[in-house]
């Protein structure tokens, strides 16, 4: 094991509600690397992110998850967050009675509190700070609110679920540039931060360099390559006949 890895997944299998979703997923992400996860709908991409974060619906039946060399497989969500794992969800819950600004301050965990207003300004979401988290937010507003919390947290590993889905082009630019910033700046732990990002369209890659791309298919990682190149291959051939994938996958 290389302790300098930010994330190492060793043959991780995950069940949701007793149903197997992910099988023997192994993955390594080094400091400063941005990884992108492709795969058709229902292939288990979001489940993988949730499982790394430790959400209780995602039950790990096999393998282990190492974060900066530490086995976090059995740590609760909040401890993972405090170690430096951050999650930007695609469909986060609405939380009544808690203003976004307050939750962003909480996310900063005392490190970065003063910057919340500044970050909100940068993301163009200052008007959301006083509103209850995600209550009545549009698709673009949800992305910005999630990103604000992630940026306040400055995680060593950002898990980002479809930052470019359901967002207008202007907002994609804001979100993309902000994510690029997030992985460029040293994290709170002074480690070059890494990211694992799910994208279907690849729009986000206009703003971010994707060091490594992975294809998840039917709960298994089936291919790996340089991010943009992999996206090109998938665009050309579809997931079914992508030459980078280990075997040609039957079209669903």
């Amino acid at each position: 094991m290389d302790t300098s890895d930010i994330l190492q997944l060793d043959e991780v299998s995950i069940e949701v509600g007793g149903r197997p979703i992910l099988h023997d997923v192994s993955l390594r992400i080094r400091p400063g690397e941005t990884h992108v996860l492709f795969g058709p709908n229902g292939s288990g991409k979001s489940s993988l992110l949730m499982a790394i974060m430790g959400l209780s619906r995602y039950h790990m039946t096999k393998g282990r998850i190492l974060f900066q060399g530490q086995d976090i497989s059995h740590l609760p969500v909040d401890e993972r967050a405090r170690l430096g794992v951050g999650l930007m969800q695609q469909r986060p819950p609405s939380v009544r009675g808690i203003p976004l600004g307050q939750l962003a301050e909480v996310s900063a965990q005392g490190k970065n509190g003063k910057r919340v207003a500044e970050l909100a300004d940068q993301l163009g979401c200052s008007a959301l700070l006083a509103r209850d988290v995600n209550v009545g937010f549009s698709g673009g507003e949800i992305k910005k609110a999630e990103l604000l919390q992630l940026m306040a947290q400055q995680p060593a590993l950002a898990l980002v679920d479809e930052p470019d889905a359901g967002v207008d082009l202007d907002s994609i630019a804001v979100v993309g540039q902000a994510l690029a910033c997030l992985v460029k700046q040293p994290s709170a732990g002074a480690v070059a931060p890494a990211a694992l990002i799910i994208t279907h369209t690849g729009h986000i890659l206009n703003y971010l360099r994707a060091d490594v791309g992975h294809v998840l298919y039917g709960g298994t990682l089936v291919g790996e390559g340089e991010g943009l190149h992999l996206l090109e291959e998938i665009r050309k051939h579809g997931y079914g006949k992508c030459p980078i994938c280990r075997s040609h996958i039957p079209v669903q």
């Binding site: 009675g97 808690i98 996310s107």
Partner: peptide, 26 residues
């Protein structure tokens, strides 16, 4: 789901619950 959401921001389960209860009554 909301409890775990707050936990992803680093709040312990107990603090997440009390924060949600307080927010609910707000």
């Amino acid at each position: 789901e909301a409890v775990e959401y707050l936990m992803t921001r680093g709040l312990s389960r107990d603090v997440a619950i009390s924060t949600l209860v307080r927010g609910f009554m707000q």
